[in-house]
Amino acid sequence: MSKQIEIKDLDIYYGSFRAVEGVSMLIEPRTVTALIGPSGCGKSTVLRSLNRMHEVIPGAYVDGSVMMDGQDIYGAGVDPVNVRRQVGMVFQRANPFPTMSIKENVLAGVRLNNQRISRKDADDLAERALRGANLWEEVKDRLDLPGSGLSGGQQQRLCIARAIAVQPEVILMDEPCSALDPISTLAIEDLIAELKNEYTVVIVTHNMQQAARVSDRTGFFNIAGTGKPGKLIEYNDTEIIFSNPEKDDTQNYVSGRFG
């Protein structure tokens, strides 16, 4: 499992508005890559283009290519549904399915994709995914209760469990901790460090310390002004970005002297 992602010269549009321009980056398997930058610079947009969620928005499209282990996910004849099965995603706001129990939430991906699965296998899978998301101990006694009855942090880990239950190759996370307290945040950061052993992880964050703590490589995005497209300014090992970046903009941003 886990794949290499190579973004080549990607332009991303919302209708006629070009939100992101000329992004190229190589993301190695089994690493954590952080995307940072000021609000509105297109981090979420780039992230969502990696599993073809971008085009869910009416009028949105991309130009360029994203190679996943050498295969272009925007190539002709590629079904976005198949791409999304390999690239899981965790959203900024936890969004468990309100009609489903905790267990059903975890198994949703498998069940909805029509895979027949025996009771025993389902139980095992649910346990594995919940353990993988560091949630098992907290919910093992109430697996049949609604997922929306958990705390915010637990819901977010439930969503992570749901994403890893379908055994993707890549996991994308868009500000997964922005609505959480420091303790839940720590739990998720630990989790990200573990996920790295099996998956390629790409995470968007506004928290510089978090990027420094969890990621191997960091991409800094910036925007010249409102209405202008966002650009990838610098992409390098996290240590270099935070200690000795090439560009002044990056230095200013990571040291908090921005604008």
Partner: peptide
Amino acid sequence: LREATYALGV
């Protein structure tokens, strides 16, 4: 909710 489901490849 819809996006969460799409993201699971449904």
